[in-house]
Computed example of a mutant assay.
Amino acid sequence: DSTRYYSEIDEFFQGHNADVVMTDEKLFMAYYPYYGFNAFTAHYANPLGQFKQRNEEMATWAENSWDQTPQEFVDTLENSPWDVPNATIFRGDIESPDDGYKAHLAVDIFPNQPNVRYDAILFDPEVFNDPDLWDVKQIGPFV
């Protein structure tokens, strides 16, 4: 399955001194010791980590990315109240970027069972299309 690409992603991140990763790939984070930008569900999140606010921030980044230049997007990230991710793992295809780069946010819908819903957020690939700001690589189904 897609976890076979995790070691290659880790090598790529190590080569870029990444330490804070934004991803919904919880198995990647289980195998490799990076700081996650956000917890995977509210149930396991430390309240001091501001799970809901971080989710809202990531959703805003995704939505606004479609109307920003690469530099404007970086400026938005740098104005975040938290240490911003310096690496991301998205689902997507560099060769067919029209659909965007996808990640999922967990939404707490307790008391329903299951009690978590995952909503997709899509980033405009164009904001990552500046080699002076980003080093983007396709690794299996991941960007």
Rank of each mutant, 00 (worst) to 15 (best):
L77M: 12
P47V: 05
A42Y: 05
P33V: 00
V84S: 01
M29D: 01
D75A: 11
N55S: 15
W61Y: 14
I89E: 00
Y32E: 02
N46E: 13
T69V: 14
A45V: 00
A45T: 06
F51E: 01
Q71P: 09
N79H: 13
A87T: 02
G49S: 10
V74T: 04
Y44N: 13
P47C: 07
F37M: 07
K52N: 12
Y35N: 06
A45E: 00
Y34K: 01
T41A: 01
E78C: 12
A87K: 03
Q68A: 00
Y44V: 03
N46D: 14
Y35T: 12
Y32I: 03
T69R: 15
P33L: 03
A39P: 04
Y35D: 11
T41G: 05
P85V: 02
L48G: 11
M29Y: 01
A87I: 06
E78V: 07
P47I: 05
H43T: 08
K52I: 11
D83I: 02
Y31T: 12
Q50S: 13
N86A: 07
N38C: 04
I89G: 02
T60L: 15
F51R: 05
A30D: 10
L48T: 12
D83Y: 08
F90Q: 00
K52W: 10
Y44R: 09
K52Q: 12
F90I: 03
Y34T: 01
T76F: 09
Q50A: 09
Y34F: 08
Y44F: 09
A30L: 10
H43S: 10
N46M: 13
Q71V: 11
T60R: 15
P81Q: 08
T88S: 05
G36T: 08
T69D: 11
F40G: 06
Q71R: 15
H43G: 09
P33D: 11
N38S: 09
P85F: 05
V74C: 11
W82Y: 13
P70R: 12
F90Y: 09
W82F: 11
N86K: 09
A87Y: 03
M29T: 01
Q53M: 14
A39V: 02
L48W: 10
N55P: 06
A39C: 07
T69I: 13
P85S: 04
V84R: 00
E63R: 14
D83F: 12
Y44K: 05
W82C: 07
E56C: 14
S65G: 00
Y44C: 08
E78F: 00
Q50T: 08
Y44G: 07
W61F: 14
V74K: 02
I89Y: 01
A45P: 02
Y44I: 08
N79K: 13
E57H: 15
L77A: 02
P85M: 04
G49L: 07
E57G: 08
T41V: 08
G49H: 03
W66M: 12
S65H: 07
N79I: 01
T88P: 00
P81S: 10
V74F: 02
D67Q: 13
F51W: 05
N55T: 04
Q50D: 12
M29G: 01
Q53G: 12
A59Y: 08
L48Y: 00
A87N: 06
T41L: 08
M58L: 15
F73T: 00
A30N: 13
E57W: 06
S65P: 03
F51L: 06
Y34S: 05
N38Y: 03
P85D: 07
Y44A: 01
W61N: 02
N86C: 06
T60Y: 15
